[in-house]
Simulated scan of single mutants.
Amino acid sequence: ETDGGILISVPLTNQELANYSATARESLNRMLSELRKNGIIEYRGHLIFIKDIDYLKDAIQCENCGREICNIE
């Protein structure tokens, strides 16, 4: 976590992200583009900076179950 958001400090390709999310790379590209356009994420080089984690949690209906059992944290 950093000021203003969360920096994913592991460089991931869009194909790797698609594999993790069980979706096609093309669909993932569209989702990332939309998230970037709406100011939810931004790119910092090859890294993703999440500016609005609450938006993402709401979008996936996160139950705030805690890090020890969470699938996304």
Rank of each mutant, 00 (worst) to 15 (best):
N64I: 02
I8C: 10
E34R: 07
I60G: 06
I48W: 05
D3R: 11
N38S: 09
A22H: 14
I53L: 15
C70E: 03
G39W: 01
F49H: 14
Y20W: 08
L47N: 12
E63N: 14
N38E: 12
I50P: 02
L35Y: 09
T13E: 12
A24Y: 09
I41K: 01
Y20P: 00
I72Y: 15
I60P: 09
A24F: 12
E63M: 14
I40L: 00
L12F: 14
I60M: 15
Y20S: 09
I8H: 04
I41W: 02
I41D: 01
T23F: 00
E42P: 00
L35T: 08
D58H: 13
I72P: 05
S9W: 09
K51N: 08
Y55W: 12
D58P: 04
I40G: 02
M31N: 10
L7P: 08
I6C: 04
R44F: 06
S27Q: 10
G39P: 01
I48G: 03
I40D: 00
L17S: 01
T13L: 07
L56M: 13
T23D: 02
D58N: 13
Y20K: 14
Y43H: 09
Y55A: 12
T13N: 06
S33Y: 00
R67I: 15
S27W: 08
R30N: 05
D52M: 00
E73L: 14
A22P: 07
A22G: 11
A22I: 09
I60R: 11
I6W: 03
G5C: 09
K57I: 01
R44W: 12
V10D: 05
H46A: 14
E16D: 12
I8E: 10
D52C: 01
R25M: 05
T2R: 14
A24Q: 11
E73D: 13
G5F: 00
L56C: 11
I40R: 00
L35F: 14
K51R: 15
C62W: 14
E68I: 12
L32I: 10
C65T: 15
E73V: 03
E34Q: 07
E26M: 05
F49Q: 03
M31F: 04
E42F: 01
I50T: 04
R25S: 10
S27K: 10
S27P: 00
Y55N: 11
L56F: 07
T13R: 10
I41G: 03
A22N: 14
E16P: 05
R25L: 05
R30L: 03
I53V: 15
C70F: 01
V10Y: 05
L28D: 04
E1T: 07
L17D: 00
A59M: 09
F49A: 03
N14D: 06
D52A: 03
I60N: 07
L56Q: 08
L17P: 01
D54V: 12
Q15I: 06
I48Y: 03
A59P: 04
L28V: 03
E1C: 02
N29W: 04
K57Y: 01
I72R: 13
E16I: 10
N29D: 06
H46R: 15
K37M: 00
K37L: 00
